[in-house]
């Protein structure tokens, strides 16, 4: 297992946002976690990347206990977290944003990799010297995903990449995630858009008010009556 979360409890002051969560993500797979507003999806990702320390439980990544590591150590170990709401650096150019994604890298291929993402997203290349704050929502999402990939992570955490995007752009974003996965990157995808997420995922978890209430292969979840009723609007 690349990632193992054991009995994780995360609180905000007195409020318990995640109670006793356990889950796993296997190397090479696309694991998705679906849940509605306020279920605790973002909280889980923040705990994984060290932005918010859990109250108890353990996070094991690549065989190492990272529960008490700082965020920059975790990035060095190979986890890249593409945050909710994209969070591109608005005052820096597209190119500078991509370079910041490679902050932890010491090799000489950074510019070459940036060119690779420009080939994936020609619209980013056209705007390479424009301030990232001026991009459209879809373009910012492409930039945020590329920026997260620039650190060459072993595990990519994606927090609701489809949020606030037009349906056509959502399709495009999921296609890209599928391609990144096909290239061999392990992905942990958090989504409210359950149908799209389950379509490209290998396995899935269902999170409801801080607890995992279901876990199965993505295909089985797509066909489950309960999931259909609660998350697929059928």
């Amino acid at each position: 297992m690349l990632l193992e979360v054991e009995n994780l409890v995360v609180k905000y002051g007195e409020i318990t946002a995640l109670s006793n969560i356990s889950l796993q993500a296997e190397e090479g797979q696309l694991t998705t976690l679906i849940g509605s507003n306020g279920a605790g999806k973002t909280t889980l990702l923040k705990a994984l990347s060290g932005l918010h320390k859990p109250a108890s439980g353990r996070i094991i990544f690549n065989g190492k206990d990272i529960t008490n590591c700082s965020t920059d150590q975790i990035v060095h170990l190979g986890i890249s977290h593409c945050p909710e709401g994209r969070r591109v650096f608005p005052r820096q150019t597209v190119h500078e944003n991509l370079r910041m994604g490679a902050f932890v890298r010491k090799d000489k291929d950074v510019e070459k990799d940036i060119e690779k993402y420009y080939r994936w997203f020609p619209r980013l290349e056209e705007r390479r010297n424009q301030k990232a704050g001026l991009l459209s929502g879809g373009e910012q999402q492409m930039l945020a995903i590329s920026r997260a990939l620039m650190s060459k992570p072993k595990l990519l955490l994606l927090d609701e990449p489809s949020m606030g995007l037009a349906p056509l752009v959502v399709e495009e974003v999921f296609k890209i995630i599928d391609e990144v996965h096909a290239e061999g990157t392990t992905i942990f995808l958090v989504e409210q858009n359950a149908r799209q997420a389950l379509k490209i995922a290998d396995t899935g978890y269902i999170l409801e008010v801080g607890e995992i209430i279901g876990h199965d292969s993505a295909e089985a979840l797509l066909n489950s009556e309960d999931v259909k009723k609660a998350y697929l609007g059928a």
């Binding site: 700082s70 650096f89 370079r99 920026r147």
Partner: peptide, 24 residues
């Protein structure tokens, strides 16, 4: 410089800067 750009990132958003691996 890489560290200069890191400072600019921090001045925009500390959390996101940390996610780049910058020791904020």
């Amino acid at each position: 410089t890489k560290w200069g750009q890191g400072i600019i990132c921090i001045s925009q958003n500390i959390e996101t800067a940390a996610l780049m691996g910058i020791p904020v």
